[in-house]
Design a protein around this nucleic acid. Structure first.
Length: 215
DNA sequence: GACCAGATTGTCT
DNA sequence: GACAATCTGGTCA
């Protein structure tokens, strides 16, 4: 993890929709107990704190969502549906309680470790795209739990960096023409807001929206 | 491919 | 007591 490439705190100190869009193509890295794992971010969703009925922070601060009310650039990891964890990056100004849910990754580091973490079960032949194409799946693959809740994303062991090309240089940002903007998934309030972003054509996206892609 | 039911427990009302 | 920013495995086409 080369620290010079890590995204600075000011990157996160913006509207969650802007951060969500700009996180596409960035590399999420976690130096866990088993080794370094990570992937390129290909799908995100923005949640705008107290202004957004779909946000965990809509009804104010609780023990669970406390990290959202802290400074930007930290990881908010919560447990849901009795079995899944989800990873967010806190954005905006402190106390704004905005966040970006990381929904899908394209595995880039430690594929074997992620394969192990995801387990086999009936899917002994689990394809690479099944490893991290969903918020619960990517947390399981990376080994993220509430233990990592609150970690600073601008420094190891859990961080987001500008992706580098295999040759070593910085990868080009994802152009607007390659970004699909659509509505969020799995929520029941404020469902119409166009705050989900994903990389057009990526097989690692959890759910495609053909109608939005046609626009 | 689309759709559906069931799993399972922390959190909040 | 209800619900949840989900996933899996099943059915049917």
């Amino acid at each position: 993890m080369r620290e010079g490439e890590l995204l600075p705190r000011d990157f996160y100190r913006r509207h969650p929709a802007l951060v969500a869009r700009d996180l596409l193509g960035m590399e999420l890295l976690f130096a866990g107990p088993a080794g370094l794992v990570g992937g390129l971010i290909v799908e995100t969703e923005a949640y705008h704190g107290r202004l957004d009925a779909a946000s965990h922070a809509y009804r104010g601060r609780t023990e669970r969502n406390a990290v959202m009310f802290g400074p930007p650039g930290h990881a908010y990891i919560y447990f849901t549906y009795g079995m899944h964890h989800c990873l967010n990056a806190v954005t905006g100004e402190e106390d704004e309680a905005a966040a970006v849910l990381i929904r899908s990754l394209e595995p880039s580091r430690g594929r074997d470790l992620m394969q192990l973490a995801r387990g086999r079960g009936a899917a002994a032949d689990r394809s690479p795209r099944d490893l991290t194409n969903g918020p619960g799946k990517l947390c399981q693959a990376l080994g993220l739990t509430r233990e990592q809740n609150g970690l600073d994303l601008t420094a190891p062991p859990l961080a987001i960096a500008r992706a580098s090309q295999p040759s070593g240089g910085a990868a080009a940002p994802v152009p607007d023409s390659t970004v699909v903007v659509t509505t969020r998934i799995g929520i029941t309030r404020d469902v119409a807001l166009p705050w989900r972003f994903y990389v057009r054509g990526s097989p690692f996206v959890s759910v495609r929206d053909r109608r939005a892609e046609a626009l």
